[in-house]
Simulated scan of single mutants.
Amino acid sequence: MNVLGYLIPGIVVLVILVVFLSFVPLGLWISALAAGVRVSILTLIGMRLRRVPPASIVLPLIKATKAGLDLSVGALEAHYLAGGNVDRVVISLIAAERAGIPLSFQKACAIDLAGRNVLEAVQVSVLPKVVETPVVAAVAKDGIELKVKARVTVRTNIDRLIGGATEATIIARVGEGIVTTIGSSNSHKEVLENPDTISKTVLEKGLDAGTAFEILSIDIADIDVGENIGARLQMDQAEADKRVAQAKAEERRALAIAREQEMKAYTQEMRAKVVEAEAEIPKALAYALREGKLGVLDYYSLQNLQADTRMRERLGKEEEKGEGQ
């Protein structure tokens, strides 16, 4: 009975100790004390209650303290609860401090919460990044197409990182500058002889305004001669002019045919009227004879005149046939 009396309290104490050690990260607290970081047991218990992993706060705090940065547990915990990456922010601050880049804790947290990789931004600030543009096609004033590929060296601008445009904007602006520069050149040979003029002209435009980067240099990696766009456009224009001329000629031909048909219809109508009028002549002569307005001698004279007229017409046609043969 005495053994059980000592064993049961011992088991209870052991269970309580195990539960306490599993809830309170005693090893982490000892590590913090050894590194010179003052974190109380109650603070660690509070993190557990707030569902914040103590290691996610204490270990970055140890890194910051060893690097000489003055950060508080509350600030790191607040950034974690806001959804930020505490360890990445601390490493970024250490890298920026070593590189002499001014970066405050609030700024780093804002960049991290904005969805930007603050560590990558600091690294690009220290070691500039080279961005390669796709092939940009542009046409000089002489109509020759040039295909250009450029390499843009950029460095992160920490102050404009929040709200600044990304690399895609830099690439688009550089491409626009290349097209403008080549398009304003009188000849493609000028561009081939001095490709650095493209870089100088594009750099003078201040293309990094409003972006999260600072353009250090623009280098022409490759430049090739493409098609003769001017000649092709002239050929297309000539073909279009030809089709327009053909359409107008067809329109004139259709108009002429329509007029010819109208004249034929008018001629047939006039002939019909003449025939109709000639049919009335005998009636008129008979009426004139009855009324005494036309004598018999006058009638025979008229007949002789008509016969003479028909004879003259027949002789004229025979002469025309003889000349034609």
Rank of each mutant, 00 (worst) to 15 (best):
A95G: 01
Q306W: 12
G74A: 09
I171E: 08
R271L: 10
K283Y: 05
R51Y: 05
P25M: 01
G210M: 12
Q234K: 15
E313A: 14
R51N: 06
V136K: 15
F20W: 11
S217V: 05
N186I: 15
Q325H: 14
A35I: 01
I257E: 15
T180Y: 11
M1W: 00
L161I: 11
V152W: 07
V154P: 01
I178P: 02
A114E: 00
A82M: 14
I182M: 05
D241I: 07
K129F: 07
V274W: 07
Q325G: 08
I170H: 02
S184L: 14
V52I: 11
M1N: 02
R314W: 10
E260C: 14
A150K: 01
I57G: 01
V39N: 06
G295D: 10
L69M: 09
I215R: 03
L203R: 14
L216K: 05
G74P: 09
L42A: 12
V18N: 10
A254C: 06
E204P: 10
A34C: 12
D159A: 15
K283C: 05
Y287H: 13
R271A: 04
P25Q: 08
D236T: 05
Q268G: 13
L289Q: 02
A209K: 04
I220M: 08
L294M: 13
I11V: 13
V12D: 06
